[in-house]
Amino acid sequence: MLHARKTEGEAVVATVELRFSALPEHVRTARLVAAAVARRAGVDEAVLDEVRLAVGEACTRAVGLHRANNADLPVCVFLIEGEKKFSIEVGEEAPSAPETAEDRAKVPSARADEEAMGHPGSAESGGAEDEGEMGLAVISGLVDDVEVIGGPGGGIIRMSWPANPAVELP
């Protein structure tokens, strides 16, 4: 799918835009598509594992937030080929809403383990969001150029990597 959209007043063409229902089984699809587009965009082969992991983490976080907030909206991933960089934006269109224990149980996380271990105190805070924090920690450790825009319950994770697209012959 080709889409044109604007970011901060500047016209940006998303090379590929992916929208999927906020279900864990679709995160793998997002990883595969992102890696394929990144490879085509000229991202170094050695970095593709990082791209795959980072986009997976961002999508996992988005799925968790959408489900925790009962947001019946798709997770959006924009894969953008720039001149010398390849960018990925993962949008979390989840409105802020009170989270329930039942919601937390829907998304597997380290938090779920803690609850199973009988630490009721830790169940007081947000599960999906804590899981998202772990994902963010991984993204921050992996990606040099990363930006998280927006507040709790919604926002965009923007990541980019250097790319050297091959010259296309006529």
């Binding site: 996992t60 597997p108 380290a110 383990d113 271990m117 994902g135 991984v138």
Partner: peptide
Amino acid sequence: DFLDSTGLGVLVGGLKRVRA
């Protein structure tokens, strides 16, 4: 072939269980 933070969480959960 692939491991993410969710997988790490499960391993940490396993560690806590055996340590108990």
